[in-house]
């Protein structure tokens, strides 16, 4: 392979090393996009899926099986403020902000999920 030496000029070699070095950075920046969480999908049995952006402060009312579930979006986060259920487990879940995060009000048939992937195959809790 000594012919390779003659094949590549100095500029070639510099270029080659630069591109090889920059490559991992490219992978990282392109693939970490997947983990970005900037919108939320809210599902209800009566209204199906609806998508909302997390970048805008807003209050959302969703019709569930027994009544309304109320959401609040602020600072890139979302939470259940209130819901038609007894235990309010959904409200207790608090603010969600991470990609793939999920919470639901089971009695009222309402759930929310932040877009993007969590980066794990499954979450244990």
């Amino acid at each position: 392979m000594s012919k390779m030496g003659k094949l590549l000029t100095t500029a070639d070699k510099v270029l080659l090393s630069c591109t090889v070095l920059l490559l991992p950075f490219l992978y990282f920046s392109a693939w970490s996009q997947d983990l970005q969480a900037d919108s939320v999908k809210i599902w209800s049995s009566s209204q199906g899926f609806q998508t909302f952006t997390l970048n805008q402060k807003q209050k959302i009312l969703i019709d569930g099986a027994h009544g309304k579930s109320v959401f609040e979006i602020q600072n890139g986060k979302i939470r259940f403020v209130d819901s038609k259920c007894t235990n309010k487990i959904c409200v207790r879940a608090g603010w969600l902000s991470h990609a793939g995060a999920f919470a639901a009000c089971l009695p009222n048939n309402v759930s929310m999920e932040i877009t993007g992937t969590t980066g794990y195959d499954s979450i244990n809790f």
Binding site: A93, G94, W95, L96, S97, H98, A101, T118, G119, Y120, D121, S122, I123, N124, F125
Partner: peptide
């Protein structure tokens, strides 16, 4: 790969 959630936050 399994992620384990923090007991006190999400």
């Amino acid at each position: 790969v399994i992620g384990i959630r923090d007991p006190r936050n999400e």
